[in-house]
Each structure stands twice: as C-alpha cells, then as structure tokens.
Simulated assay, not measured.
Amino acid sequence: MPCPGVTTGRVEVPGEDYGRIQQAVDSGKNLWRLSPVRTAQVIGTRNFGLRERDSYTFVEQYYDPGSGLQHAVVRVRHQSCTYLVELYQPIKQGQKGIWVVTEITEV
C-alpha cells in the first residue's frame, strides 16, 4: 500500500534553474545542495511529500559513463513505506557540484 501524498516516478521542481542554484552555492548559499542526503531531505520535504523527520540513508554514489555525470541514491523511510530517491549533478561534478532530485521510487 503506497503512502498517500508522496510523489513517485521521474520528478523535477518546476522552474528550477540549475545554473543559478550552482552560482548561489559557489557564493556560499544553500550549501545543503552539496549533500545528496540533505538535498533529498529538503527538496523531498518541500516538493514531493516526504517529511523532515523521515529516515534518510545514503546508499551509493556512482559515475554514469554515458552521461558523464555523478549520480547518488538515498533511501528514505517514510511511515510504513521505503523510497529510493535518485539524484544527479547537472553542472559541476564532485564535491563542489549541486545535487538535483530526478526520481523517487517506492521499494
């Protein structure tokens, strides 16, 4: 039984300007964007029905040779449900790159 109110599938935040977000982080703002776990938590809570108090666990980070981009997976325990939140780095790769949520899958 899926948990009501949580958005699953491919997701994006309408109007998110990755270049502008990366510039803000480069200038020291919204540094939570540098952590896949914190990004899953903040964006998931604001936009996709997850909760700040849910349990967020880093699963893995991997490089996709096809796109040349870093990806990460975060497991979220929400009520009786478990979700995998997939993220990637659209602008810069590595420690200084922002993370963006792309998909939420119930497991």
Score class of each variant (00 low, 15 high):
Arg77Ser: 04
Gln93Gly: 10
Lys92His: 06
Leu34Ser: 02
Leu31Gln: 07
Gly68Tyr: 15
Val59Ser: 06
Thr57Asn: 05
Ala72Phe: 04
Ser80Thr: 15
Ile91Tyr: 07
Glu12Gln: 15
Lys96Ser: 12
Val74Ala: 08
Asn47Trp: 14
Thr45Gln: 10
Gln95Asn: 10
Tyr63Ala: 04
Val6Tyr: 08
His71Lys: 08
Pro36Met: 01
Phe58Asn: 00
Val6Gly: 02
Asn47Pro: 08
Gln70Phe: 08
Val42Lys: 12
Asp54Ser: 00
Val59Pro: 02
Pro90Tyr: 03
Gly97Cys: 02
Ile98Lys: 04
Leu69Ile: 04
Gln93Thr: 11
Thr45Arg: 05
Ser55Val: 01
Ile104Ala: 14
Lys96Arg: 09
Val6Arg: 05
Val100Phe: 00
Glu12Trp: 15
Phe48Ser: 10
Ile104Lys: 13
Asp54Leu: 02
Gly68Ile: 13
Thr45Phe: 10
Arg20Cys: 07
Thr45Leu: 11
Leu84Gln: 08
Val76Gly: 03
Ala24His: 09
Glu52Thr: 12
Ser80Asn: 12
Lys96His: 11
Pro2Ser: 13
Val85Met: 00
Trp99Arg: 06
Pro65Asp: 15
Gln23Leu: 11
Leu34Lys: 01
Gln79Pro: 11
Val74Lys: 11
Val11Tyr: 07
Val11Thr: 06
Val85Lys: 03
Glu103Arg: 15
Thr105His: 07
Asp26Cys: 01
Thr102Gly: 08
Asp17Gln: 13
Met1Lys: 14
Thr8Asn: 12
Phe58Ser: 02
Val100Asn: 01
Thr8Trp: 10
Ala24Trp: 07
Phe58Val: 01
Glu106Thr: 02
Pro14Gly: 08
Gly44Asn: 00
Gln70Tyr: 14
Gln61Ile: 00
Arg10Met: 15
Asn47Leu: 09
Arg10Lys: 15
Cys81His: 08
Gly66Leu: 13
Gly68Asn: 10
Arg51Glu: 09
Arg51Phe: 07
Asp54Trp: 00
Tyr63Pro: 09
Leu84Thr: 08
Arg51Pro: 00
Phe58Pro: 02
Leu87Ala: 09
Thr45Met: 11
Tyr56Met: 05
Gln23Arg: 10
Gly97Asp: 01
Glu86Asp: 07
Trp99Glu: 07
Leu31Thr: 06
